[in-house]
Design a protein around this nucleic acid. Structure first.
Lengths: 399, 399
DNA sequence: ACACTTATGTAAATGTGTTAAACTATGTAG
DNA sequence: CTACATAGTTTAACACATTTACATAAGTGT
């Protein structure tokens, strides 16, 4: 509950103007004034500030409608960059993004030893993150504001405010204060968040519908969900919101590692795909590690193998059930399927959507279900860092 | 995306100060200044305004800690009143509340004909609402601001912004623009909202933890859920959020009127209690209408009848499953059980809470589950009207 | 008594958006 | 080509709110 003074007021109005320019390819001071309700004088003043800051460019004149030609204004998406790192079990993706989330540099590195199936340990992971960030920093294009921050997406439980990692189940890492280490080394603000949250943020930014609610279903080894509600990431009491993966969808169903039975995650994850394959008595090479079996099954499905496709249809059915539950619960504007499982979108989407329409209450049946952007999680991590550094409101609870 | 000018700024800071005073029994200008970050001069100025408006009183001097005695300030909860109407199938409750939600007047009227089981029709309902509101208006105590608005809680689908009722399934009412009628007749702002939302709002206001997240599970004939997320009612795309009642908890479970199978509502509502009684071969008088069977079973349970208690235990089990799902989904600060079913709290809470602890992921197991306040829905309806009329932010998205 | 501390009020300075008018650039009509 | 109308931009006076600095009030401790 912070107070507002004159400078906070100007920052808020400046943000209003900047948002408007960002959301319109080309615009004029007059248009901004009409849209925001600010007077033309104020808009001129704020635009001047933004021009000086480099966030906005004047790009020639527009067509006249019977008078002086307007000066066209354009958002300079390249005024600043941020780095996003998406750490997964099998690999990590590092990107450099501009303000709009366009990728200027990208690198993917494998973390899992494909032969031995050996996972990376905590120290080696830190070293790889440091190496990758260094490489990314070397590829940041010159810009007025340079690099504003580093966002780190991890598959597990994090306290976003403190940047402390509680637990990454699939990496066997717990209680890790990685933020301080990176922050000190790179002298940049570092933000650590759950991967599903990052994915959700990226989708929200791309769609760019103010105050909308977007659900990002990150289906991989497990299922995590990122929630954008009324245009804001909802993290819950302990930053734990979105654990829809442990929602019971079958009272006496398959036992789950969380102690419960019939969790969504046991029916709609990469792990559950393995179970379906077993149940269908489909043999998969036991030497290959989990993450590549999915890709193998996708490959087989592309070749037209019906029995593999059948496994994906089961997965799609359960994704549909879970998404219907989520839609009924939150009545969002859109649901996005992300994570490794979304690679099989082609083979599971039909069943997923038909089940969704069958299970959701009638008013929710038309909520669009789409596939997530490639590299969404890494882009979102960069976006969160950008957002916190550049657009974070001076006033708590002011969007 | 509205702009902020000087007067909006003052309103926001005024709201900050008022909230602080409201949330502390007795306080001083200095304490407000330190808590809000506003300078002492500004606080003095804002407090003066609030004194003039009657929202705050000076009540003598506090103890000195080595200097001038501070003037003690107290929130005047009786500076304004609002009316709340809770329309249920069987009865309606009308209350007059002060700003804090204390009841100054209350009246309950039966709507359902106990003999015939005949439900009330739309026109009669309107007439009753008008009669009840008139009676309430006559009982409003004198105050600086008088009556600020009327809140109407209904069991069904509403567009809060327009006040248009889409559908009240258990009253067989659809597409009803009741807001305009009442607004014109009483020349007061009228707000129409879903009953679960009103219940959630009342619980949030009573607990009064800023930015907290509270889930109100309204279990009656059906199950509706009201969501307070980060201190704000979350309504979703179409005002439909909170339909956890139609969350699948059993893939091939009991068919539901929504077209789905295994909906939560089919296992944790008053209706499902009837089914449990049947399954347990417990005979209940077929002439009595639904709403009184619940009360009858509660009565029998109080007498110590184990078989009736067993039915409640089943209900409790499923409430626990559903609440675990909700807790995992949203990681709230608290879960509240409201609605008619909560009358049986004594008989179902133990099983409900143990099931919850068993099903929720470990970090969510300690989330408190409590029983809702009596008359919570009506108080919440009044509270929403009060809030919209007095505290609604001049700037979109500012809490 | 005196110095110090705490609480509150007052007046000038500063910063912001608004309003209204002046200014600039451009197009259209005669 | 000139006069006029239109659209966009800038400037100056003004209103409002917060801050800063100082003054005042009223207690405590030595």
């Amino acid at each position: 509950m912070m107070n507002i003074d004159a400078s906070a007021m100007r920052l808020l109005n400046r943000a209003s103007v900047l948002r408007y320019i960002r959301d319109h390819k080309l615009t004029t001071r007059i248009a901004i004034s009409e849209a925001t309700g600010l007077t033309r004088a104020t808009v001129s003043s704020l635009v001047e500030t933004l021009l000086e800051e480099g966030f906005v460019d004047e790009v020639g004149y527009g067509a006249s409608s019977g008078g002086r030609k307007p000066v066209m204004l354009r958002f300079n998406a390249d005024a600043a960059y941020s780095i996003g790192v998406d750490v997964q079990i099998s690999h990590m993706t590092t990107v450099v993004c501009n303000i709009r989330g366009d990728i200027a540099y990208k690198n993917v590195r494998r973390l899992l030893n494909a032969q031995t199936g050996q996972k990376i340990d905590q120290l080696s992971l830190l070293e790889w993150i440091q190496t990758e960030v260094k490489a990314a920093l070397a590829h940041v294009p010159p810009s007025p504001h340079g690099i504003t921050g580093i966002g780190l997406a991890v598959p597990g439980l994090v306290n976003f405010t403190t940047g402390f990692i509680y637990h990454l189940p699939n990496l066997s890492i717990s209680n890790w204060g990685i933020r301080e280490v990176l922050q000190e080394q790179f002298a940049l603000p570092v933000y650590v968040d759950n991967d599903a949250n990052c994915g959700a943020f990226a989708e929200y930014e791309k769609r760019n519908v103010p105050k909308s609610s977007i659900i990002y279903v990150n289906a991989g080894i497990g299922v995590g969900v990122g929630l954008i509600l009324n245009g804001q990431l909802f993290r819950g009491r302990d930053g734990l919101a979105g654990e829809f993966g442990h929602m019971t969808i079958e009272e006496n169903g398959v036992p789950c590692s969380c102690g419960n039975r019939g969790c969504f995650e046991q029916y709609a994850s990469e792990q559950s795909l393995m179970r379906y394959l077993e149940e269908l008595q489909i043999h998969v090479s036991p030497s290959a590690e989990i993450s590549s079996i999915l890709e193998q099954v996708i490959y087989e499905s592309y070749l037209g193998s019906e029995k593999y496709q059948f496994a994906f249809e089961r997965l799609g059915t359960y994704l549909g059930i879970g998404m219907a539950n989520i839609a009924n619960a939150l009545n969002p504007d859109e649901i996005v399927l992300g994570g490794r499982v979304s690679m099989a979108y082609k083979f599971l989407s039909e069943r997923m959507i038909s089940t969704f329409k069958q299970r959701a209450i009638s008013q929710n049946r038309e909520i669009p279900i789409v596939m997530g952007y490639v590299n969404g999680v890494a882009i979102g991590a960069a976006g969160i860092a950008m957002n916190e550094s550049l657009f974070a409101s001076p006033v708590a609870s002011v969007g």
